[in-house]
Design a protein around this nucleic acid. Sequence first.
DNA 1: GTGAAAGCGCTAACAC
DNA 2: GTGTTAGCGCTTTCAC
Lengths: 343, 343
Amino acid sequence: MVTIVDIAKKAGVSRGTVDRVLHNRGKVSPEKAERVKYYAKQMGYKPNLAAQGLAARKKQFQLGFCYLEGRTAPFFEKVCEEAQKCAQELTQYGVKVSFFPIPVEHNHDEERILEFARTYQMDGWVMYGTFGTHYLKAMEQLGQEVPPVVAYNLDMEQRIAFVGCDYVQSGRLACGLAALMTNQRATVGIITYYEKNVASQNRILGFQQEIESHYPDMKVAEILYLEWYMDQFDVFLQVKSLLERNPQIDTIYLANPGDYSICKAIYKVAEKRQVKIITHDLASQELIEMIKKGEIAATIGQEPEKQGREPLELLFNYLAYGKSPEKDWYKTELSIHIQQNVE
Amino acid sequence: MVTIVDIAKKAGVSRGTVDRVLHNRGKVSPEKAERVKYYAKQMGYKPNLAAQGLAARKKQFQLGFCYLEGRTAPFFEKVCEEAQKCAQELTQYGVKVSFFPIPVEHNHDEERILEFARTYQMDGWVMYGTFGTHYLKAMEQLGQEVPPVVAYNLDMEQRIAFVGCDYVQSGRLACGLAALMTNQRATVGIITYYEKNVASQNRILGFQQEIESHYPDMKVAEILYLEWYMDQFDVFLQVKSLLERNPQIDTIYLANPGDYSICKAIYKVAEKRQVKIITHDLASQELIEMIKKGEIAATIGQEPEKQGREPLELLFNYLAYGKSPEKDWYKTELSIHIQQNVE
DNA sequence: GTGAAAGCGCTAACAC
DNA sequence: GTGTTAGCGCTTTCAC
């Protein structure tokens, strides 16, 4: 294994100089820099991570992790759980991660976010796209330099990388499942919270694209938009009338479950008609129970653990080792869970 | 963060003594040992991995990784690929991993395995169960002390841990998929290579158990055992007559694909009857293409990457840091792949 | 501009 | 039995 000292010897310089060249830090004569770079490449130098990590302790980085909190964001709990584990491990490298729960009702509150941006100074941030976008706007308004941001779950601009799933593909996969369960003849009722939610929109888009490109005998009968304020009983009535309006519906695609309590309401109506329900994520215990019982036919996962861990690791590598993320988009895998492989 | 020196100070001993206590290595007076242990626990000491890794370089461990090689073992290629990546990373810790491909035809050749055991001495081994079992027998015969072995893919006795899937559950999941695709009314033809293969047997067992416990309207019409020597055309004829004997079959469960070339043969026969095919693993490009085209309805994965990486990491942790595996069985997840989430 | 040296936390060889 | 010390590879500070 090639070390920094090996290069120093070959290039006839000191180990300090090699380090300066490798990190584009400080004053080195052009010729020496050239020579060092040449040998580093030629000898296939790869920094030793253990050693780098050990030395990194002195830097004491402060990172911030923002996540959505509230009844309607159970998915983020899973993400956050893994992020906490990762944060614990990063302790070893002298990193301190602070967690910032954002209540769903403040998610677009520009005033508050401005205050947030003013108050908290970090060496780097992990944010989900919607919040990150607001944050950047706030920082611009404040005329402040933005630290590196890694986005997760939903993408945003000006981040150094994004970790999350392909929502369009996610909708396509849901469509494929519907096809599988109905001999490619499904008539689908789509139900979703929040008409303007990008994730939900893209999923529905993907679902419809897939029908068009692969399944001529399938169709979407209606898209039902639920509103924030509806409770379980409201939902029950809405779904009931959806099914009454469209007696041919045999599959329900719940593109954005939000609060999973609505699943129960949907199931109650759908049960009598033997309608298959397909939804996303595996976040609440309630949902898991329903899948185990076969009340929900299938759910599509998007690796919440990876969304919690990878952004922190990317950020740390970026700051501590100067390693820019190799990819622009770290796609999480879309998993299918049915009765027999849940848990 | 608590370091070894902090403990030494508190306990009023030297850092060397603390190290000896923590690793149960060498002579320390009982009282001092007690004191060190007490403070280590009380202060919540966690060794710094970076530092440990750096220091581990001097030990120069030699590990061996055995894998099955040949046309009928494409799954192992994926495993091996990831294992090689992991081996490359372990280089940083002074670890050298040697890879031993075992041709399928030598897999049970006791004579050869005896020779193998005699020839290669390693600090630790990663082996798939079938080979590992023979290896242990050989070592016993030679009267040699066995180094630690981590098993993967198939379990064995006397290993320090096992990394692999639950084959019974894997068969249950296949059954669940069949149910999903047929409104719980599938009539299934099961096809498998090698009657005595444990993985295959357990999958079929799980499949049948699941029918019994959940799907009264499903049944297995026949189990067809293929033989080693059959070529694609032989398979074609066998499957054809299987379907002729059982005109009600609407689903084929290929419990052990072995060589994936038989998939094409099965599809050719099954196509006319619109029979759904379910199989395992995602190992060959050929198979992936068939799934993309929808010729194979679904395949069930078992995390080959994890099976390649985790055993090496466990073995390294065991040897270098004296950390025994936390679990006895590291279960790999069963994933479902259909047209829309393959690749 | 450059080299020398200290130190990150841990391990193991060595001296007493 | 126990303490001391060299060193793993890298970063950074401090002289020159």
